[in-house]
Design a protein around this nucleic acid. Structure first.
Length: 420
RNA sequence: GGAGAGAUGGCCGAGUGGACGAAGGCGUUCGCCUGCUAAGCGAAUGUAGGGUCAAAAGCUUUACCGAGGGUUCGAAUCCCUCUCUCUCCGCCA
């Protein structure tokens, strides 16, 4: 959420941000509602002050003239009307302002689609194969470690059942990632609820705009990313300044409806309704949150490096940037079987956008007032996609798959062979 | 699922219709004092919105005692609904 004061004082900044993102929001209406709200506050406050004065007089004199009482009663009626209108206005303002995306950072390229995302750096290349590399779903099914057919029977499309070493590989990756982030990057591991309420989803920005992307129960929504429960750990709290940055890491399963992506990545592990992810979350000081973004991104990259995977880093342009984000780096891993780079991590700085929605603050003893802190997060990494990348990159001509050096202690195995 | 108890400031805790933004204590900050430390003394100490101001400070006003409604000239206090926490019983992984 943006600060209404910024919108009031610098509407042109917000307009530019919206046009760069290719989004439409009726700012004029918002400003009109805001002006109306302020004028009505004045009227209401004056009437309330009058009523308070009268009440005070009553308490001292133990009485008042019937005419006075009559007048105050009328004022009371008017206040009720005003308060009702106020509530409507605030709802209307809230509804618009919660649909305004974050303002992109000045270093973000202006562009309209993913075509315009600049590549920041490329690590490794496109390693050659002496044979034609297969796609991971074919490898996985041939090995008997990935079973999409039975998963579809159990649940439906876009689910997967892992067998034996495939299940073990999933778990090994989760443990490996958590170990690296906690032991080498100083993150604190957290284990969270996998469902969250509407307030939490509103704070991180999934609601109200993206409700159709979420699975839900009668009472709660299933988390589409650990960003939601982890960022909300400190909702409505004020953190001591000296504790910043707070670095957390969490493993959660993630649940996404993937509405509107029918026909996209229909095969394999790339786009599932349920997938595992290890997520990095930071609560940062506003003065250095973009430094934190560089650090967080390199922590995510560290996993790819250690696994010996080749990848590139791109910076999302204004048109491709997520709703809550001010700047996002995507890590794209090379998938030789498919012959494409696939997103495997998305690292974002949200500035105070989520913190304002979730009322997450920080203060030091010297500070007179608390301020919103900045929030960041990034996948470190998406586990299913990492598993897919390993299959495609470490495959042998006979369909077996070598275990990356870093995973051997976790797999207690050098080679993934067919399950009979 | 059934029966009870509770939710007050950074924390503990008082407060059953007006003098309560809220006693008292703890903590924190500033100052004083004590030849160090501890103790002691004095003062300050919530948040958010609006108005005034070029702006800050200041001044002023409104709201906030789990959330939302109601009664009343006036609600932390009375009534209703909801949420959460705790205890007991039942059921169950």
């Amino acid at each position: 959420m943006l600060d209404i004061k910024i919108i009031r004082q610098n509407p042109e900044i917000v307009k530019k941000s919206l046009s760069n993102r290719g989004t439409e929001v009726d700012l004029e209406e918002l400003l009109e509602l805001d002006a109306r709200r302020r004028s009505i506050i004045q009227e209401g406050d004056e009437l309330k002050a009058k009523r308070n004065q009268f009440s005070e007089q009553m308490s001292k004199n133990k009485g008042g003239s019937p005419e006075q009482k009559q007048e105050i009663r009328q004022i009371g009626e008017r206040i009720k009307v005003i308060d009702t209108e106020m509530k409507d206005l605030e709802l209307a303002i809230d509804d618009i302002i919660k649909r305004i995306p974050n303002i992109p950072h000045e270093t973000v390229a202006v562009g309209s689609s993913e075509e315009d995302n600049p590549v920041i750096r490329t690590i490794g290349g496109k390693p050659g194969f002496a044979f034609t590399p297969k796609e991971h779903w074919e490898l996985g099914e041939n090995l008997g470690i990935l079973d999409f057919k039975r998963a579809a029977k159990i649940t439906g499309a876009r689910f997967c059942l892992n067998w034996g070493t495939g299940a073990r590989l999933e778990r090994a990756l989760i443990n490996f990632m958590l170990d690296v982030h906690t032991k080498e990057h100083g993150c604190t591991e957290v284990w969270t609820p996998f469902m969250a309420n509407r307030d939490s989803f509103t704070a991180t920005g999934q609601l109200p705009k993206f409700e159709e992307d979420l699975f839900r129960t009668d009472d709660y929504f299933l988390v589409p990313t650990a960003e939601v429960p982890v960022t909300n750990i400190y909702r409505d709290e004020t953190l001591p300044e000296e504790k910043l940055p707070i670095k957390l890491v969490a493993y959660t399963p993630c649940f996404r409806r993937e509405a509107g992506s029918y026909g996209k990545d229909t095969r394999g592990l790339i786009r599932q309704h349920q997938f595992d992810k290890v997520e990095l979350v930071r609560f940062a000081h506003p003065d250095r949150s973009f430094v934190d973004l560089e650090e967080l991104t390199s922590e995510a990259e560290d996993i790819l490096r250690k696994l010996g995977l080749h990848y590139r880093v791109i910076s999302l342009c204004t048109g491709d940037l997520g709703f809550s984000s001010a700047k996002t780096y995507d890590l794209e891993v090379w998938m030789p079987g498919q012959g494409v780079y696939k997103e495997i991590s998305s690292c974002s700085c949200f500035t105070d956008f989520q913190a304002r929605r979730g009322n997450i603050r920080y203060r030091s003893v010297q500070m007179k007032k608390s301020e919103f802190c900045h929030t960041l997060n990034g996948s470190g990494l998406a586990v299913g996609r990492t598993l897919a990348a390993i299959l495609e990159n470490y495959q042998n001509e006979d369909g077996t798959v070598r275990v990356p050096e870093a995973l051997k202690p976790y797999m207690e195995l050098d080679l993934i062979e067919p399950i009979r």
